Amino acid sequence: MKPYSMISITLFSLLLLTLPLHLAGALVSVRETCKAAKKVVSNINYKFCVSTLCENSTLAFLVANDTRVFANISATAATTHAHNVIISIQDLLRTSPDPVTKSVLMHCNGSYNYVASSWDKAVIAINKKNDDVAKISLSEGMTSVISCETQCGNAGKLSPLIEMNIVSAKLVTLTYAILEVAEKNKY
């Protein structure tokens, strides 16, 4: 075996041995961030927070160990969720024979297109450390989620999107709280 191959293997082995230490440090940071977010907004579900941040993280984000990165992860998860809701709405539109339900779903489809756009803007604002714009974008998107849910009630229909709308609200609330933590930590 060539000497540079041995060096590469040795360095790779060292990386694998130290990786759990980096991940453990990041998980502590996730936990600390979630605890701090819960102090900002008391109704945040701690397990939901940890799960959201860990499940939507890449190794690069975990190693970064930065509260602002966690706000980005949460906002990105919210944006991805909004896009998934749009796909669900389109599936429901194809299978729903009821004209009132179709009308409500069409409204929600438009609302969630706005939601996805607003939350995409929030991610960009978080990356630029423009928290005021991020918070406004999160709020505007949430207003559209509420509009979707309200439209169902106004039509006298049980919302087929209630669970997805609840997750949207949880993700936005979490992102907002983490932004508050990041501001207190001065990034």
Rank of each mutant, 00 (worst) to 15 (best):
I7H: 01
S8V: 13
L14T: 02
L19S: 04
L21T: 06
L21M: 12
H22C: 11
L23W: 08
G25M: 10
A26T: 03
L27M: 10
L27Q: 10
V28C: 06
V30T: 07
V30R: 01
T33V: 02
K35H: 09
K39T: 10
K39S: 12
S42P: 06
S42Y: 02
N43C: 08
K47A: 14
F48N: 11
V50T: 14
S51R: 11
T52Q: 03
T52E: 07
C54F: 14
N56V: 04
S57R: 02
S57C: 08
A60R: 10
V63I: 15
N65K: 08
N65T: 03
D66V: 04
T67G: 02
T67P: 01
T67W: 01
R68A: 15
F70W: 12
F70P: 00
A71D: 03
N72T: 11
S74G: 06
A75R: 00
T76I: 00
T76H: 02
T80M: 05
H81I: 06
A82T: 06
H83P: 00
H83Y: 03
N84F: 01
N84I: 00
V85K: 11
I87C: 00
S88K: 15
S88F: 01
R94W: 00
R94M: 08
R94F: 00
R94S: 11
T95I: 13
S96K: 08
S96H: 02
P99I: 09
P99N: 02
V100A: 13
K102I: 05
K102R: 15
S103M: 12
V104D: 05
L105P: 08
M106I: 12
M106V: 12
M106T: 15
H107I: 15
H107K: 14
H107A: 14
C108K: 07
N109I: 07
N109F: 09
G110E: 11
N113R: 14
Y114R: 12
Y114T: 14
V123L: 07
V123C: 10
I126R: 01
I126M: 04
N130A: 12
D132N: 10
V133H: 04
V133Q: 13
K135L: 15
